[in-house]
Design a binder for these strands. Sequence first.
DNA 1: GGTTCTTGCCTAGACGCCCTAGGAAAGACT
DNA 2: AGTCTTTCCTAGGGCGTCTAGGCAAGAACC
Lengths: 193, 193
Amino acid sequence: MARAGLTTERVVVAAADLADEVGFAHVSLSALARRFGVKDASLYSHVKNLDDLRTRIAFLAGAEMIDRIAEAVAGRAGQDALAAFADAYREYALEHPGRYAATQIRIDQSLAASSPAFARTAEVTYGMLRAYGLDEPDLTDAVRLLRSTFHGYCALEATGAFGASRDVRTSWTRAVAALHVTLEHWPREASTS
Amino acid sequence: MARAGLTTERVVVAAADLADEVGFAHVSLSALARRFGVKDASLYSHVKNLDDLRTRIAFLAGAEMIDRIAEAVAGRAGQDALAAFADAYREYALEHPGRYAATQIRIDQSLAASSPAFARTAEVTYGMLRAYGLDEPDLTDAVRLLRSTFHGYCALEATGAFGASRDVRTSWTRAVAALHVTLEHWPREASTS
DNA sequence: GGTTCTTGCCTAGACGCCCTAGGAAAGACT
DNA sequence: AGTCTTTCCTAGGGCGTCTAGGCAAGAACC
């Protein structure tokens, strides 16, 4: 019988595609095996188990996403960089809902630390904020605010939590603009009540 | 054989408790039945199926949550009201991770519209924002920004996405303070570029 | 108090998904 | 050609969802 030519890489990419189509929660080894024309037991040579597969999708998505963001941010600074970062983030989340959902799973802290994508994400994010002249611990607070807003908006938009009344893109643009103003006038740590 | 005394209400509450303990994604009818000392098929008299159960948990959680928020906001205005709203929101999400996760599932728009909790949520939220004097469509944009930040922060905190370095409560307080400033200086629609 | 009716919980069973153990054969290497 | 490695297989157990049909607990009636 001709072999399907599976590799861990191919399996994970196919799983990520499947996630984008049917939703991350509905990714199953059975469905994936069906897609390859293979029995589900065969996949266990390439992936430890379902949890391992999910983690691998998360790392794949994280790497893809930060690549797109880094490219968008390159050569920009200040509000320009922030807007580029935000739009690239949201576009990835909308284009790849399954992959994006994967990035939100709980990942072992030490495992995450060893990933180049995580380091790169921190680097790009903090780099983008450099123009605002914040120092620690303000910087961490600001990053947390940004991540929260970006993720929250995309998550809510993806689940259809926003009514259709007002254009979703416009609200996004204005939210990002508001964040820019917030960053410019960020109260320094000493002034916290 | 003595009956377990199941009702839809009791089943849903037990399911919500189970969700808080093991995570919303791991709520199963089997586990729930086990908890009641009952066969899983028995639950189908009280709940249509797993999806129905999940939706009911979501409505329960949504109602509980807005009750807590409304109580916290009552009698406050401006920054006070915003902080009370935000803290009540976050506390609920942290105390009841499973219930909170349930509120994030996709719910049929018309089904949601018929829920009193949804109307109440809109009422309380828009009421809290009254002090900032915003009109539509700015109001909708502002609500979307608030929801995004609140949800994003809680979701990231819940999945352990924030490193342990900086106190999570402090970052939250400062994020809420930043939102207050943003709302006070919200650029009116006409001035949008 | 007995009879009837409703309905709560049951058994039985189909089907899907996760995962392990062990076997067969395709393709690489000598 | 013979050997080795690796890929994919079959077989099977465990757990989860869900349906169909049955029995008996407890309420409702006489």
